[in-house]
Amino acid sequence: MKKIDVQKQILKIAPVVALLILFAVFYMVGTIKDINVAYGMKAIINQSVVVAIVATGAVFIYTLGSFDISLGASVAVSALLGGIVYNATKSILLMLAVCVGIAVLVALFNSVLASVFNLPVFVTTIAMLSILNAVVLMLISANGTGSQIAVPSEAVAGLDNLGIKVLVLFLFEALCIFVFNFTKIGRKQKFLGSNPVCAKLTGISDKKMSIVAFVMSGIGVGLGAFLCIIYAPTLTKNTATSVGMDVIIAIVFGGMPVSGGARSKITAALIGAFSMTFLSQIMILFNLNLGIGQMVKAAIFLFVVFVATSNQRAKMLPR
């Protein structure tokens, strides 16, 4: 094997190696500091699973070279409407259906704006972010308590266990891997992300692919919203506010090229989401104050992204 191929293979698995290193550091430092590592693992899964699911769906959008910053707000709206429907019907299944349905509708609206009216996705999602934030405030105000929409904790307590969360994550991950890696959809999306002009000339419809990408992302958002309710059934205007930014960081941290295209990886979201949470937990273990912790995290983030993308830079065509 040529030297350059070895280097490529190493760089390809860099995010996974980074995750394993972070896990090892967490385990070793945790053991030295006598923390409850087993409980910590459970906490890490709880803290990562929503971002992992939403980010996995979002990979389809990123693969096209697009960018959606309204995902966090979409999670919040879906969760709030899901909560309202549960309180009205007492049906968990209906709550799940509403969460996914609303998220897919919002995603479809985004894709229609973007593809049918030929607007840049980034612009439409900025507008959607404002709209969804306003909807969040309206829903909470209309609910009557003014500050929150609460699903009775007893109603979802039985679902708040790691088995169900990991199962949902596994099933959605498997679906996305299948669609992305083993069907024409994934190949077309990578082609569109790599070279849209060439892809169109070969007969690939960017509109159709855009709609598929947003629908997949919507399913992830809906499942994330459902898990948000299960995890913390008291929903406020701040619910999922950090999810939007966490999704972007997770996707990049996991080794996904920001420009999308052929090097896009569906597993990047999963790897990135867990890497971020491990990193946060390690910062807490070292008892770094918030400011220093954030700076250290930023430096590590830059380093990991630098390593993970170093084989993409010195090329004539970045995709």
Binding site: N46, Q47, C228, A232, T234, T236, T239, T241
Partner: peptide, 10 residues
């Protein structure tokens, strides 16, 4: 939010 409280307790 409540989710933040739960993560923090964990």
């Amino acid at each position: 939010d409540a989710a933040g409280e739960k993560s923090a307790i964990d």
